[in-house]
Simulated assay, not measured.
Amino acid sequence: MKRFLPAVLLPLTLLLAACSGTSSADGSGGAGGSVDGKGAVTLAVGDQKGGSEAVLRAAGELDDLPYRIKWSTFTSGPPMLEAVNAEAVDVGSVGNTPPVFAAGADSKIIVVAATHGSARGEAILVPEDSPLTRTTQLKGKSVAVAQGSSAHYQLVASLKKAGLTLDDIKVTLLQPADALAAFTSGKVDAWAVWDPYTSQVLHAGQGRVLTDGEGVVNGLNFQVAAPSALADKAKAEAIGDYVERLRRAQDWVFDHPEEWAKVWAKETGLPYEVALGAVKLTHGTRVPVALDQAVVDSEQGIADTFADLKLIPRRFDFADYVDDRFNKDLPPSTSPARSYGKASSR
């Protein structure tokens, strides 16, 4: 597994459109590499709606930070990784497919941490009054999806399971906000998406699940960093601390689902009861896992699939984009997702 690779810069148009705002979490105390003894290292972190900042804050993991965090919010993983490639973001959280598209474009990105959980939040939605009841019935229909997102691969895999391909449907590439508008106005027949959007549509009575990703996709999520940040000793130490805080926060979510649901409801606009159900279904099931060979093999399969479809410009070895220095004593990536009502897999 290599750590640093040369790459070309991607256009920043999506990056600029996706940064919806920033906030900062300032900590006191001196981290290794601080130049003024007051947490001078600033970590630029990419986030998504109801994501890392919210869970870290709820779990108390933003208290007493030995470095500063500058947050940028993105609509999905692909534009976030454009920012990582451009060194505008040091590290950020994405699903299983954005790193494949970024690496396929020879971007400067390195996967540094992983979680494994339920894929039920990854869903293909249809309107409540849609006549569609089976995935096979998507043939000839229009489906909205964000290019290079985790939902993109879930769509490919679900179609394959039903004996279909992308050529059998009309793919409409849209980011979530535009996809929601197209979906609710009837301009597309279905929408492949992820939580919290799945939960929002279901709660609003705007759609239902045609099929989900459980047993179809690998359920992996990643922290992806910029090679330049990893090459900087102080920033690398901060990234290591940051991913460890996220792991503790994920444990906190499993032990405090009601508290997290209250926070997540506020972040997403969902009613508490709906948020709690979504937390127990997807968010609370995640287990921090090692970046091991099973991860590489699974992601390589996704990369090869998109290369075969000619949706990424080249073939590559996913292992070249993995840095396992922060693995510590984490369980293997094949560890089962957590399930409420059963013993924790920790």
Rank of each mutant, 00 (worst) to 15 (best):
A18D: 14
A18G: 14
C19E: 15
C19T: 14
C19A: 14
G21C: 03
T22L: 11
S23D: 15
S24L: 09
A25W: 13
D26K: 14
D26Q: 13
D26N: 12
S28W: 12
G29H: 07
G29W: 09
G30T: 10
A31G: 11
G32E: 13
G32R: 12
G33M: 06
G33C: 04
D36C: 07
D36S: 10
D36G: 08
K38E: 08
A40R: 08
V41F: 04
L43K: 05
A44E: 11
A44W: 05
V45G: 01
D47M: 07
D47N: 15
G50P: 03
E53I: 10
V55L: 15
V55I: 15
V55Q: 12
L56E: 07
L56P: 02
L56Y: 10
A58D: 09
A59L: 04
G60H: 05
E61L: 03
L62A: 06
D63N: 08
D64H: 10
D64T: 05
L65P: 01
L65I: 04
P66E: 03
Y67H: 05
Y67R: 05
R68K: 15
I69M: 01
K70Q: 14
K70Y: 09
W71K: 01
W71N: 01
W71A: 00
S72Y: 08
T73E: 11
T73Y: 10
F74M: 00
T75I: 08
P78D: 06
P79E: 05
